[in-house]
Write a protein that binds this DNA or RNA. Structure first.
Length: 717
DNA sequence: AGCACGCCGACT
DNA sequence: GTCGGCGTGCTC
């Protein structure tokens, strides 16, 4: 090795080069074939001396392949799909006829081996094959490419989400032998749904049905998913299930173990630790395991011969990745179903507008239970409106209307009672207590928010408001702030001194509670499952859930209410739900009738009328005013595109932790424009924005202000 | 983004 | 004469 290096000749950088090389060699000592060197003058592979490489650089103007020469020694290992390290950067440029080594070593994947390159200049050599394990096959590459295009992002960014980081030890261990397909199941509880048995039979027969499944309340859903997976495996194909969080993943995991036995499926969750995660992922990729359940990153799992993709509870915000380009599970699985011609199952107790659209467009069939089934399985839902609450003096003081009080007391005779309270910090738009006019900043008309110290400040400009009064009616009282789970628990503990009170929230999530009477105070999404179901549930502070300035506020509130109410016994068994919210509002009525699909269909019609997503496709473009204006002038939008704004955007959004991607870049003067296109022009919109962005980056050389593009922005309320 | 190239002003 | 400012362009 030293003699080979000695040949690298050129005086510049020879010594640091060798040092770097030694470090690399030590680091990679476990993989004998991976020897990073300069390969100067080394013989090239005879058959296909060119490797086409996707380099791990997320920037858009580098979103293409780069060709490298394959040294003879790496010929065998440098197969398509393997991880490599290559020199990349301006340093590796031609100097007076020769080629100087320079530029950093960066990671990449070989996508193809070719006989020749269409690049005119001299090729640099692959520095190193990190491992001969192929991790990126054509199918995953194609999917990543499609996702990148869909979201106007780069292939490298998507691959970072799709291919987990390498762990050498996990790689060195063999995966188990693949198991033979299980027998096809009988439809069991799928018979509760119209055409449910037919759906399962189609999976078992190798078909590719697509369905939006409105699950009946109760704990059956996990086994119903496991059954669909079993049916698919029985047809000799693989299956992939994506759920929003670790708890539902554990439920499906248990159901799969029950049906298939141990070791027949992989569990891919973010909290598993790198080695384990990579080991499970490799077992899938190597074809040792054909079924996968996991959280959002699992949406890319390289399941062989994919026959079915499943997403559970697609309205949950955890299904949106928080790394660029922010792909969403439902959308990615739609792409996979279309690309792989496999079955698609979107299941939820509730129904998103997007799910309703899949049905309305005819892309997926509805999988629903008959009305009587639904009525039989759901609890009795009653409402307490604001008016009732206001008249109910004592209740108002205690924040617990008489009806809710009674339901709790009655329920506690028979079992646990769930109390759902919105998260503190789940800041709603504050409004006048008398006339409900939203409270606005007197300087910029932004929405006022309650600070932790009890004061008010503007969510847009951040100015404090010391003496608010309503511009409409002169009132000076705002609606009460949301009381957190802990304080609610204390209050209830005093009200029901004989009953144990337990809380489940963000910091400490309870998984299950027993069948004994207890008050269980929980924030949405953290509700424990009760053994035998809750006797009753109280859904408090509905106004806060509904009052958020967000297009999805109604749908989200309904989803969270249904998520809690689905854990309550059916009405035949005395299950009762009391929701404290205005009974005339659409989501409240949908809960009372247990009709999430009807709600979504009406929302969809309204969105179509207003030209809102998902009926139109939107992109948000955010940046400092001047840069934004310049960007919008430069971009060649499809002819049917429409630009809304730009308008000033919030500097920060207090009450919610900043997530990457929603924080507007450019500080104080950031503005946001929305670009809207009719259905069918989404791809053209993404392409146009990406082209403009790439040109900008290439031209701007860093010092230009950042303009951020986001397809399908979440917060366009 | 990095990073090196190149073409202008202060320094030993 | 040479060192080094950062404007400009490229990355197989």
């Amino acid at each position: 090795m030293s003699s080979e290096n000695g040949r690298s000749g050129g005086a510049e950088g020879a010594v640091p080069e060798q040092l770097a090389l030694i470090r690399e060699t030590v680091r990679q000592a476990r993989t004998p074939k991976a020897k990073p060197r300069t390969w100067r003058g080394a013989a090239l592979a005879e058959g296909l001396p060119v490797a086409r490489v996707v380099v791990d650089k997320g920037v858009l103007h580098l979103d293409r392949y780069f060709d490298y020469a394959v040294p003879k020694e790496l010929d065998e290992a440098a197969q398509p799909g393997v991880r490599v390290r290559v020199r990349f950067g301006a340093g590796a440029r031609n100097v007076r006829g020769g080629r100087r080594e320079g530029g950093g070593l960066i990671d990449g994947f070989i996508v193809e081996r070719c006989a020749e390159s269409d690049y005119a200049g001299p090729l640099a050599a692959l520095a190193q094959v990190v491992s001969p394990e192929p991790v990126l096959d054509e199918e995953l590459l194609g999917l990543a490419r499609a996702v990148a295009d869909r979201y106007a992002g780069s292939l490298a960014d998507v691959l970072q989400l799709a291919v987990p980081p390498r762990h050498a030890r996990a790689e060195s261990r063999p995966s188990p032998d693949p198991a033979p397909p299980p027998p096809a199941p009988d439809p069991a509880t799928w018979q509760r749904y119209r055409r449910g048995a037919e759906f399962v039979a189609s999976l078992a027969a190798g078909g590719a049905p697509r369905a939006v499944w409105t699950a009946l309340p109760g704990p059956q859903w996990a086994d119903e998913i496991a059954l669909a997976v079993q049916a698919t495996l029985a047809s000799g194909r693989g299956a992939l299930v994506v759920v929003p969080a670790g708890r539902p993943a554990a439920r499906v995991d248990a159901a799969l173990r029950e049906r298939l036995g141990a070791g027949r499926h992989a569990l891919l969750t973010a909290d598993a630790g790198q080695e384990r995660r990579y080991r499970e992922w490799l077992a899938v990729r190597r074809g040792a395991v054909h079924a996968v359940v996991g959280t959002r990153a699992a949406m890319f799992a390289p399941v062989r011969d994919l026959g079915l993709v499943v997403v559970w509870d697609d309205g949950d915000s955890s299904h949106a990745d928080d790394n660029a380009p922010f792909p969403q599970v439902r959308e990615v699985l739609e792409l996979r179903a279309a690309r792989d011609k496999c079955a698609f199952l979107l299941g939820s107790w509730s129904c998103t507008v997007e799910a309703a659209q899949l049905v309305e467009s005819g892309w997926a069939a509805p999988l629903v239970a008959d009305r009587e089934q639904v009525r039989g399985a759901a609890p009795l839902v009653r409402t307490v409106g604001d008016g009732d609450l206001a008249r109910d003096g004592a209740a108002r003081a205690a924040r617990l209307p008489t009806l809710a009080w009674q339901a709790a007391r009655e329920g506690l005779k028979h079992g646990p009672v769930l109390v759902q309270v919105p998260r503190r910090g789940y800041v709603p738009r504050l409004a006048c207590e008398r006339c409900r006019e939203p409270a606005r900043c007197r300087h910029c008309a932004g929405p006022l928010e309650a600070r932790d110290d009890g004061g008010l400040s503007c969510a847009w400009c951040g100015r404090g408001e010391a003496s608010w009064h309503c511009q409409e009616c002169g009132g000076f009282r705002l609606r009460a702030q949301v009381v957190g789970a802990r304080r609610t628990a204390e209050e209830l503990g005093r009200a029901f001194p004989a009953v144990p009170v337990r809380t489940s929230g963000r910091e400490q999530v309870l998984d299950t509670v027993g069948a004994a009477p207890a008050l269980v105070v929980s924030t949405p999404g953290a509700e424990p499952v009760a053994e035998g179901g809750y006797a009753a549930a109280l859904l408090l502070d509905g106004w806060a859930m509904l009052g958020r300035p967000d297009l999805r506020a109604g749908e989200d509130a309904l989803r969270r209410w249904i998520g809690a109410a689905a854990l309550v016994r059916d009405q035949g068994a005395g299950g009762t739900v009391v929701v404290v919210a205005e009974p005339t509002l659409r989501p409240v009525q949908a809960l009372v009738r247990w009709d999430p699909v009807g709600h979504a269909v009406r929302e969809l019609a309204e969105r179509a009328e207003l030209g809102f997503p998902p009926v139109s496709r939107m992109a948000a473009v955010t940046g400092p005013r001047d840069a934004l204006t310049e960007f919008l002038r430069g971009v060649e939008l499809p002819p049917d595109a429409e630009i809304l704004g730009p308008v000033p955007t919030a500097v920060t959004e207090p009450g919610r932790p900043r997530r990457p991607g929603d924080a507007p870049p450019g500080g104080e003067h950031a503005e946001r424009a929305l670009v809207r296109v009719p259905p069918g022009s989404g791809a053209a919109l993404a392409r146009a924005l990406k082209t403009a962005q790439a040109a900008r980056m290439a031209r701007g050389a860093g010092q230009q202000a950042v303009v951020r593009v986001r397809i399908d922005p979440a917060d366009i309320g």
